[in-house]
Design a protein around this nucleic acid. Structure first.
Length: 482
DNA sequence: TTTTGAGTTGTTCGA
DNA sequence: GTCGAACAACTCAAA
């Protein structure tokens, strides 16, 4: 009897799962395995929203496996040690897993591969979480793409594989006495009992979010996606794609059948714009895989020399949603409360932190990773570097969002602001994004005046960038690295 | 090899 | 109020 292990990591689902599929049909007995790596809770960039989402998704995964007559085996410890132990116990000679492209994951998988090899066990990794891996698309000169538009053209020129069929059928059950440890409780993992589910987790929620979006909303995505007050204007699939509670193949198949039903050019456009967002996801995964230094610094190293002069108190006010700029504060309070933020708002608050408050994009990046339920190194880092103007294909440094006009443009009625900044409840729409100009705002409302002046800070920001441009950096750089 | 065209998401200024 | 230009040149991708 051949026994295979499937090692779950960022693929917490039973449907359309490449490695699980391979293990299921390649063996007589399957051991579904998850390693609760203690590093998860100790990692500085992991926060409660993501831990909660992970726990809920694992519970859902365990239930779904039970419906297939299977049991998720959970162990706690270092993956290279636990997998060796598990393979000895079960007699497994193959471990299947889906590839993860982050620097930490690559290192870990190399350690696991080596440890298993000593035992005579093969670690087989599969492509699953992306359609195109980091060397799949190369420009005519043989290099990897660093500009989105040509990357996107190349991406779209190739076919997209269909989802895998459901797994099923009779299987040899696992012995009941094989140890599976309980997952940490909410109190252990989060330091407090979870009062409410912030973001619906698990495979079924992912499927519901996908269905709702492609059936009802993708057609007006092009405009709806820019309005944060519209709760269903975006897909809300980010955390599901991060943890693999849905596969990108499944998403693209549903998108493609929705697009086929479009009846107006605007509807086709909506579907295409959303596809473009999914291609952006793979673009940044590819950038991180090919240029891992972005995790530590600017994609263009000359921008590591920027002199960020923002005050700590400004950063604290940004985190707390107390900057005096309503659209920024509403967005930051929403993030703190729900673990999620609308994409348009991510750009606005990122621009504001870097270019108005003159605080390093890396501090914002770290805060987002801790706060976001969908915090993903590749996408988050790419987004922050884009906003700061130091990344691939970045916004020109002089493109600085005006927090007032952005608010007026994308939250014209102030609906979103009022939802999260109740102090401004009674300010009329035409003043809500610049309430300091409103005679109607009583000073005792408690809402702070702006902590900085946008026009002043904008000029300081341009000066800051001016200072690093055109200067020879070689001498400075050598000093820094020593 | 050289040349050419283009580049997510904007804002401000002055006519 | 509306419109076009400037912002600042630089790098990438493709022919």
């Amino acid at each position: 009897m051949k026994t295979d292990v499937h090692w779950f990591r960022r693929d917490l689902r039973i449907s359309d799962n490449t490695a699980l599929h391979a293990a299921w049909y390649g063996s007589d007995r399957l051991v579904p395995f998850f390693c609760w790596d203690d590093a998860i809770l100790k990692a500085p960039d992991v926060g409660p929203a993501r831990v909660a989402f992970l726990l809920r998704s694992l519970e859902s995964l365990a239930r779904n496996l039970e419906s297939l007559g299977h049991r998720l085996i959970v162990r706690h410890g270092r993956p290279e040690e636990e997998l060796v132990r598990l393979c000895r116990e079960t007699g497994a000679k193959e471990v299947h897993t889906n590839r993860d492209y982050e620097p930490y994951a690559r290192e870990r998988d190399l350690r696991v591969h080596t440890a298993l090899e000593v035992e005579g066990v093969l670690l087989k990794s599969h492509r699953d979480s992306v359609i195109r891996e980091e060397r799949d698309l190369l420009s005519k000169t043989g290099g990897v793409y660093t500009v989105f538009t040509p990357y996107s053209r190349a991406w779209r020129a190739l076919p997209v594989p269909a989802p895998l069929p459901r797994i099923g059928g009779p299987r040899t059950a696992l012995p009941a006495d094989w140890v599976s440890l309980p997952l940490p409780s909410d109190t252990e993992a989060l330091g407090h009992p979870l009062r409410q589910e912030l973001f619906p987790a698990g495979e079924r929620s992912a499927r519901q979010a996908l269905d709702t979006f492609v059936e009802h909303r993708v057609f007006d995505y092009e405009t709806a996606r820019n309005h944060p007050a519209d709760d269903t204007g975006t897909s809300r699939l980010s955390a599901h794609l991060r943890f693999g509670t849905v596969n990108i193949r499944t998403v693209l198949e549903r998108l493609s059948s929705a697009r086929a039903k479009a009846t107006t050019p605007a509807q086709v456009k909506g579907a295409d714009v959303w596809l473009s967002e999914l291609v952006w996801r793979e673009f940044y995964i590819q950038i991180l895989a090919n240029h891992p230094h972005v995790a530590r610094g600017a994609f263009r190293p000359e921008y590591d020399a920027l002199q960020w002069s923002g005050k700590d108190a400004w950063f604290d006010a940004w985190v707390a949603g107390q900057t005096g700029y309503p659209i920024v504060d509403a967005a930051m309070r929403c993030l703190a409360k729900t673990g999620w933020m609308h994409n348009r708002l991510r750009m606005i608050v990122a621009m504001f932190l870097t270019k108005d408050l003159l605080v390093s994009w890396q501090r914002g990046e770290r805060h987002f990773m801790r706060a976001l339920v969908d915090g993903d190194l590749a996408a988050n880092n790419g987004g922050w570097q884009w906003s700061a103007g130091c990344g691939t294909d970045a916004a020109p440094y002089f493109r600085i969002f005006n927090p007032v006009s952005q608010g007026e443009k994308f939250d014209p009625e102030g609906t979103f602001v009022r939802r999260w900044v109740p102090e401004l409840r009674d300010v009329p729409a035409d003043r809500i994004h610049a309430p300091w100009e409103s005679p109607l705002l009583p000073s005792r409302s408690g809402y702070p005046p702006p902590i900085v002046d946008h026009d002043v800070q904008r000029r300081r920001c341009l000066d800051m960038f001016q200072a690093v441009k055109g200067k020879p950096k070689a001498a400075e750089k050598e000093e820094e690295t020593e």
